[in-house]
Amino acid sequence: MPYALFCNDAQISKAYPDESDVWRLAQRSGLVVDVTADDNRPGPRRVLDNDYEIKPCRAAQGEDPARNKAEADRQARMELELNS
């Protein structure tokens, strides 16, 4: 099942094959924050900022989550090269 980034129940990203792909997208977009540890969990943990959520979704008609992932990975590599 594909996953996407949502805000207030509205899908705001393309569909990706895996939940971890959407976490990477959210991280690159500055939507992931680290919160300090609490009594139940040692160390910091990642959470999404504000009302953002990662949820399972259906891919739009004609949308290929694997292609979306490949394009996002390609764009991330290009950004790294430009920033080097």
Rank of each mutant, 00 (worst) to 15 (best):
Arg77Leu: 07
Ser20Gln: 12
Leu80Ser: 00
Arg77Phe: 04
Asp39Gln: 10
Ser20Lys: 11
Asp49His: 08
Asn40Asp: 15
Arg67Trp: 12
Met78Trp: 13
Ile54Ala: 10
Glu19Thr: 10
Gly43Val: 03
Thr36His: 09
Ala37Thr: 09
Asn8Gly: 11
Ser29Asn: 11
Arg41His: 12
Asp38Ser: 03
Pro17Thr: 14
Gly62Glu: 04
Glu79Tyr: 09
Tyr52Pro: 04
Gln61Ile: 06
Tyr16Glu: 02
Glu71Gln: 14
Ser13Val: 07
Arg58Ala: 10
Asp18His: 14
Val32Tyr: 12
Ala37Glu: 15
Arg46Glu: 15
Ala4His: 07
Leu5Gln: 01
Val22Ala: 03
Pro17Phe: 08
Ile12Val: 15
Tyr52Met: 03
Arg28Thr: 01
Gln27Val: 02
Ala76Tyr: 07
Gln27Trp: 05
Met1Asn: 13
Arg77Lys: 05
Leu80Tyr: 02
Leu80Ala: 03
Lys55Asn: 02
Lys55Leu: 03
Pro65Asn: 08
Asp49Gly: 04
Arg74Pro: 00
Asn8Val: 04
Asp51Pro: 00
Gly62Asp: 06
Leu5Lys: 01
Tyr3Trp: 15
Asn68Leu: 08
Asp73His: 06
Gly30Pro: 03
Asp18Gly: 02
Glu81Ala: 01
Ile12Gly: 00
Asn40Ser: 14
Ala59Asp: 02
Asn40Lys: 14
Gln61Val: 10
Glu81Thr: 00
Asp9His: 13
Asn83Phe: 13
Asp64Arg: 13
Ile54Lys: 02
Glu79His: 11
Pro42Glu: 14
Asn50Ala: 14
Val32Asp: 10
Ala70Pro: 03
Tyr16Met: 04
Val35Met: 10
Cys7Trp: 04
Asn8Asp: 15
Cys57His: 01
Asp73Met: 13
Tyr3Cys: 12
Phe6Asp: 02
Glu19Arg: 15
Gly30Trp: 05
Leu48Pro: 03
Arg58His: 11
Ser84Phe: 07
Ala59Glu: 01
Tyr16Ala: 01
Arg24Ile: 03
Leu25Phe: 11
Gly62Phe: 06
Ser84Trp: 06
Asn40Phe: 15
Glu53Thr: 11
Gln11Ser: 12
Gln75Gly: 02
Asp34Glu: 15
Asp64Val: 12
Leu80Met: 05
Ser84Met: 10
Gln27Ala: 07
Ala15Ser: 15
Ala66Gln: 12
Ala4Met: 09
Glu79Phe: 08
Pro65Asp: 05
Asn40Thr: 14
Asp73Tyr: 09
Val35Arg: 13
Arg77Gln: 08
Val32Cys: 13
Leu80Phe: 02
Gly30Met: 02
Ala37Tyr: 06
Tyr3Arg: 03
Leu25Val: 11
Asp18Ile: 07
Lys69Val: 05
Ala66Cys: 07
Ala60Leu: 12
Val47Ser: 09
Arg45Gly: 05
Pro44Leu: 08
Gly30His: 05
Ala70Asn: 11
Ala70Trp: 11
Glu79Gly: 08
Glu19Tyr: 09
Lys69Met: 12
Asp38Pro: 00
Asp51Cys: 09
Pro44Tyr: 11
